Computed example of a mutant assay.
Amino acid sequence: MGVTTQTGEKASYLAKERSITLPVTVINGKNDGPVLLLTAGIHGDEFPSMYALQQLQQSIDPKEMSGVLVVLHLANLDGFHGNRIALNPKDEKNLNREFPGSAQGTPTEQIAELLTREFISKTDFLVDMHSGSANQTLLNHVYSPFVGDEELDALTFEFAKATGMQHIVMYGDRPRDPNNSISYPNTAMTRGKPGLTTEIGHLAQSDEASIAEALKVATNTMYFLNMLPGKPVEHPEPVIYETIKYPSSTTTGFFRPSKATGDKVKKGQEVGKVVDYFGNHVETIQAPVDGTVMMVNQMPAIKNGQSVMAIGVEQSE
């Protein structure tokens, strides 16, 4: 994007193309190694990873690093300044649903196309760093996608374990067509590059514990790739999930959850209630499976068909 970062140097700048502006840091290590792309702000209201990546880039000496680290500090700048949950106010679209994008499309589609062309195409490994939005409580977890490529899927799983996160979700629901890749990390996967999604922190908060966890995860990925001296520390008791299910409301009104993130639930167990605008009970929502509550919608407004939480189903032995 018009900026060259020489071997052994670091550059932070606003990368610009047409109406798109992206805050980027490139750290070009002294020694050979892979290219790692760490991205925050695909959703502009998910803050812990933004602060963590600021700290990471400031702490690294390129002369002590191998490979190239590309830090995309904020992929959705308009959403960030617009204080929007997930969306870009220029076109009301979710950037993580518009890949591989279009150079002739809406503003969000243009960002997706630029990220596909100028960032994903040049990287070897990608981590898309998220958190719970203002309407969600969240159990920290990492998605380990699989696309039917045995070698790539195995490497991606090792990459996920190396983050050190305890809760790992195996995720194979995205399209496998690179021309209809939908999400940011899946765009990497459909091009043969491991792409993880981390979820750390919630309620649009910027608490120090979540920032520290995001920083640890980012550093562990660099250890895994031998970009920095050190070894990744895997969680001693990882929990692997084979899928996530989303119980939904069949009515409209106020949702009141009765379960919190981390709770274990049994199929058929109550997880929340819906009352109408007058406070009258209209629905009891039940868990569709046995599992662990991964996310809870904390905003009371609920519509018919809207999911109220995410329940992770642990992998069978």
Rank of each mutant, 00 (worst) to 15 (best):
residue 134 A to N: 09
residue 153 D to V: 09
residue 271 V to A: 03
residue 103 A to F: 15
residue 158 E to K: 15
residue 199 E to L: 02
residue 283 E to Y: 03
residue 63 K to R: 13
residue 215 L to H: 04
residue 231 K to H: 07
residue 105 G to W: 08
residue 185 P to L: 08
residue 138 L to Y: 06
residue 153 D to R: 10
residue 235 H to S: 02
residue 41 G to F: 03
residue 236 P to L: 00
residue 91 D to E: 07
residue 8 G to N: 11
residue 190 T to E: 05
residue 303 K to R: 14
residue 306 Q to A: 12
residue 203 L to P: 05
residue 5 T to C: 11
residue 282 V to G: 00
residue 199 E to S: 03
residue 70 V to M: 12
residue 202 H to W: 10
residue 74 L to Q: 15
residue 224 F to N: 08
residue 209 A to K: 13
residue 254 F to D: 05
residue 145 P to M: 08
residue 211 I to R: 01
residue 152 L to P: 09
residue 230 G to Y: 01
residue 34 P to H: 13
residue 240 I to V: 11
residue 242 E to P: 00
residue 135 N to H: 11
residue 305 G to H: 02
residue 290 D to G: 00
residue 46 E to K: 03
residue 7 T to M: 13
residue 198 T to M: 04
residue 230 G to E: 02
residue 291 G to E: 01
residue 259 K to E: 06
residue 172 G to V: 06
residue 146 F to C: 08
residue 161 K to T: 08
residue 227 M to T: 04
residue 154 A to M: 09
residue 39 T to K: 09
residue 5 T to V: 15
residue 124 D to S: 09
residue 141 H to S: 14
residue 274 V to E: 00
residue 168 I to Q: 09
residue 54 Q to P: 08
residue 224 F to A: 07
residue 121 S to G: 10
residue 310 A to N: 11
residue 70 V to H: 11
residue 141 H to C: 10
residue 15 A to C: 15
residue 180 N to M: 13
